[in-house]
């Protein structure tokens, strides 16, 4: 049974790691907290699911989901760069709009993919067992995405994107259109998030319009867990760390559920993880100040 829990966590962690890498790209590289994720994840699921139930090839359905995510990110980027809407609000607007879009795409609140052809059943035909098929797909997708991002972030375009998140004024003064960088980055990020949504929906055999709620927080929690546990000395290391953070996050969730946490409290739990992680530098500082004062008190 524990092996099952472990396998399940690894399966989910790998499939969600694509989303986490997308969140890393906006949150860390572009320094942009992008809430579009909550809408583009179910968008990927919705597009893949509706295409599969209407008889299309699962691979085609997945590629279409990726394209849809790219468009969603592009729209958020345009809202921010062309109309000067704040990053958070641009993401919220896209997220809310996508809720309606996703319902329209699906035509109903949820779609079952039971007994449908999926990317996994296609591979299972090759003679792998169910669980190993999912892990194989997850590993290929995660390793592929890490490799592609690593390559991309070391190209001229990737340099310009990293500099845009680091010091936009500086890279503008070197002739880069930082607005274009943000739009491209958001587009790639949400394409990855939608890809992840498409893989997850085929894995769990249903798509639900509510499956993206809190997805950004899950992404942030995984990014932070990965960075803390596995280090950020180089870009490659950070990418691997962040992808593994997704697996660790799923393991932690599985463990606390085993320990008796109610599934309905999961989002509260995830929000707590992120809050603690984001607050810790400041808390550390305050703690040191407090301790320092006490020491001074002793000295005086």
């Amino acid at each position: 049974m524990y092996l099952n829990i472990l396998l399940g966590s690894v399966e989910q962690g790998l499939l969600y790691s694509i989303m986490v890498l997308g969140v890393y790209l906006t949150f860390r590289v572009l320094d942009y907290a992008d809430l579009t994720v909550d809408g583009s994840f179910p968008l990927g699921a919705a597009v893949a699911a509706i295409l599969i139930v209407s008889g299309h090839n699962p691979l085609f359905a997945t590629l279409s989901a990726i394209a849809a995510g790219a468009v969603a990110g592009m729209i958020t980027g345009a809202l921010h760069t062309q109309f000067k809407i704040a990053p958070l609000l641009s993401g919220i607007l896209s997220m809310i709009a996508l809720y309606s879009v996703n319902l329209r795409v699906m035509g109903r609140a949820n779609i079952s993919l039971l007994r449908q052809n999926t990317v996994y059943t296609q591979l299972a035909g090759l003679g792998l067992s169910d669980s190993w098929v999912v892990i194989a797909v997850g590993v290929i997708a995660a390793v592929g995405m890490v490799a592609v991002l690593w390559w991309f972030l070391n190209t001229e375009l990737g340099f310009a994107m990293r500099a845009t998140g680091d010091n936009a004024q500086m890279i503008r003064s070197l002739g880069v259109n930082t607005n274009a960088m943000k739009i491209i980055g958001l587009s790639i990020s949400n394409a990855m998030v939608a890809f992840s949504g498409a893989l997850v929906t085929q894995y769990q055999s249903f798509a639900d319009v509510g499956m993206g709620i809190g997805m950004i927080v899950v992404g942030l929690a995984s990014v932070i867990i990965g960075e803390v546990l596995f280090g950020t000395t180089t870009i490659f290391r950070t990418l691997v760390a962040v992808a593994m953070g997704s697996v660790v996050y799923r393991l932690v969730i599985a463990i606390v559920l085993q320990l008796g946490l109610k599934p309905t409290d999961l989002k509260l739990f995830t929000a707590l993880i992120v809050t603690i992680a984001l607050a810790s530098p400041i808390m550390k500082g305050k703690l040191q100040v407090a301790l320092g004062r006490r020491k001074d008190g002793h000295n005086a």
Binding site: F152, N154, T155, E156, L157, G158, F159, A160, L174, G175, V176
Partner: peptide
Amino acid sequence: RGQRRRLRRG
């Protein structure tokens, strides 16, 4: 500076 950024090695 001033060049189009491409997908070449940075």
